[in-house]
Nucleic acid binder design. Structure first.
Lengths: 296, 296
DNA sequence: AGGTAGTGTGTGGTCTGACCACAGTGGTCT
DNA sequence: AGACCACTGTGGTCAGACCACACACTACCT
């Protein structure tokens, strides 16, 4: 299965026969990541160096780097000096988007499954945020005096289950209501709003997954605008619902927050002609349209 | 940004300056997927053909194919004849696992965020399955006589929100309780059980995501066994809890099913020394151990 | 002395051409 | 009819050669 591997004393990793060269490179880098030898911000050795060190060809190194790049683990830059070369990062969102989008394209993922998964995550996010608010409120009511007396600032992010930061979300809502965004702009802001809620939980896994789910069906969402009876009426309703979601979270009411998110998302996709996202059923055939968005 | 591209009349796709050659290849294939020209089971043209057709080098084609392979969109096979070459597939699970695992390794994902996200999805899955059972039961009670009279078999998978198929799950439970699996074997079966529940919803997105979440922290789960007071007692409890989950689903009780899953997962990770997965809080530093699992 | 233009060097990005191992295909020989 | 074997095309790999680029350095001119 393997072509002749350059057996000229690789400097670092033993080559495992039976695997492909680029897999060895990938495993080598993953090992360094797990060991902490490589961390976000670090430079990878140059492709040529890596190739000679590992005893593989440069093209094999490049295939591995390409994979890592698509997986959101590194970014490359031509030229010289700091900032050039391959640098370790950890940006899962783009990778999630590509993965889900391509799986949808290849019919591995159904659009309504994507939507209903998004529904699960978003309702959970809203519920958790509301619960966190309720918890923080309760704690605050009991501790406020003592904390102030001790001189300990009630810094939301440094103490226990802190108060979620909803200001990014509300700022986006302000932006949506000012100016007169086009449907596409509006939907972009809408995506940012939902993402900001996920980010308020500080759970990167949820944030990245939600971003991916949302991005991968962005084209369908935009295409759905054509199915609406009245964009003006729909967007007004969406704005109201956004405020209701934030209010429910601020009130510390998980039930209301989850329900608000649920009806918000379900409502739009129903209006936009997706058919309602079925929770469990092997639902009817889903519409297929919109041109191919280019690779992100 | 771009080296001299072979401008010799590419046969298919126009080359877009400003993007890298392999991105053009990727975009070209994604376009064909969206258009339906390429579907699971189809053969991709050979690397050499693709290269000349698109007017790029074979190495660029290979980088794009490598990406698609890691993303679970195609599999390659050496040799000749049918079955060889690059074939379109749609297996997102492996890609999800790699993505999440590597992001955890690169510190883009926190282990407890992975766990708490898994918690969200699994509780939702159990709740939805139970709800589906309740719905199917209700329908069945009303329709049974008429359906039988009409000669229409109550085929669970062909009518509306059908009865979820829990038999794979229970078969796995049987396997767990027979024989005397080692902790590692037990945890593998446990993973299969949870996966089978996700698959019972027929939602591939959830199933793939859950698989990825679970796989990516498999090493931590296994390492956690060492923290247990008594493996025997814990595994007994886990078995009981599994049955309780299935029973709650069979009873059509979403609340109970979700709660059972919640305590099941939370309980294990608490015992295994993960610290409880915090829903929202920016929790304390997470443990970091286990050797690097090789690329999957 | 202080800018400024030019050169040097190393990076990723790409292409080409050459091998290898592999697995069907199809012919040939027994 | 059966067994054998060269043929052919596939992915996997490597080596070497360019290119565009961006920084670092140096010599130059003002």
């Amino acid at each position: 299965m393997i072509a002749p591997r350059n057996e000229g004393m690789p400097a670092v990793t033993l080559l495992t026969p039976g695997t492909r060269a680029w897999e060895d490179v990938l495993a080598h880098i993953e090992r360094q990541l797990l060991a902490g030898t490589l961390a976000p911000g670090d430079h990878l050795p140059s492709e040529r160096t890596l190739a000679t060190d590992l005893g593989v060809g440069r093209s094999s190194v490049r295939e591995a780097l390409r994979v890592l790049e698509v997986l959101g683990l590194l970014r490359t830059q031509t030229g010289s000096g700091p900032g050039s070369g391959a640098i370790i990062i950890a940006r899962p969102s783009g990778a999630m988007s590509s993965l889900i989008r391509l799986q949808v394209a290849a019919q591995g993922f159904r659009v309504d499954d994507v939507v209903s998964t998004r529904l699960i995550l978003e309702t959970a996010v809203a519920g958790q945020l509301a619960a966190a608010v309720a918890r923080a409120d309760a704690r605050h009511a009991g501790d406020a005096v003592h904390a102030a007396a001790r001189g300990a600032a009630p810094h939301a992010l440094t103490e226990g289950p802190g108060m979620p930061d909803l200001s990014p979300a509300t700022e986006i809502l302000d932006a949506m209501e000012q100016g007169d965004p086009t449907p596409t702009e509006f939907l972009a802001l809408d995506a940012q709003f939902h993402l900001s809620l996920a980010q308020a939980t500080t759970n990167e896994v949820i944030a990245a997954t939600m971003t991916g789910l949302r991005d991968s069906i962005e084209g369908y969402s935009i295409a759905g605008v054509a199915h609406l009876e009245s964009w003006h009426r729909t967007s007004d309703r969406l704005k109201r619902e956004h405020r209701a979601i934030v209010d429910a979270i601020r009130d510390g009411d998980p039930e209301a927050a989850s329900a608000a998110v649920n009806s918000h998302i379900t409502g739009y996709y129903a209006e936009a002609g997706f058919g309602h996202p079925s929770p469990v059923a092997p639902a009817s055939a889903h519409s297929k349209q919109t041109e191919g968005t280019t690779h992100g």
